[in-house]
């Protein structure tokens, strides 16, 4: 074998060996457990914190009277947190974190402003005409939105 080939083979062998050693140490431990990914990533995805809490286990245990109002209304299928936002902070410390909703008209308008794309079963109003000086809640109870 010519000397060039010998030396080159040694150089390449060293290079490949170094690569294999590096690869051994750089490959994460759980890689390939289920597929071509870090198995631990499944668990990491699972372990992220929950912010929208289970309504029946939390909201309703304290606010049972409001829940009763809601349950008798057209809003009965709507989760508390749809309007009030995520409840995790309030559940952790009800004194400190209040999630009572602001009374802006736009807020109700998210569902009830007039839009031809909206299903007709949803009551819709023209925000620019329907009692435009008043807050919605001065006439409607948001938990049971017939007139007060």
């Amino acid at each position: 074998m010519p000397v060039q080939v010998k030396r080159l083979l040694i150089a390449f062998a060293v290079f490949i060996a170094l690569f294999l050693v590096a690869r051994h140490f750089l490959r994460p431990a759980t890689f390939g457990e289920y597929g071509h990914y870090r198995g631990a990533a499944l668990k990491e995805n699972e372990d992220r914190p929950i912010k929208y809490v289970n309504m029946n286990e939390t909201c309703i245990t304290c606010h049972d009277s409001i829940a009763a109002v809601r349950d008798s209304s057209v809003h009965k299928s709507i989760n508390c947190q749809t309007c009030h936002g995520p409840g995790y902070k309030h559940v952790d410390d009800p004194q400190k974190t209040n999630i009572v909703k602001e009374h802006a008209r736009e807020f109700c308008g998210r569902c009830h402003s007039k839009n031809p794309a909206r299903a007709k079963v949803i009551k819709q109003i023209d925000m620019n005409e329907h009692n435009k000086e008043d807050e919605c809640i001065s006439c409607h109870n948001s938990h049971n939105p017939v007139l007060w």
Binding site: P2, V3, Q4, V5
Partner: peptide
């Protein structure tokens, strides 16, 4: 050169072929 000192004609021909 990886420490190769060979400058013979034969080595050049090898270089050339490879």
């Amino acid at each position: 050169t990886l420490g190769i000192k060979d400058v013979s004609n034969k080595s050049r021909i090898t270089d050339n072929k490879l």
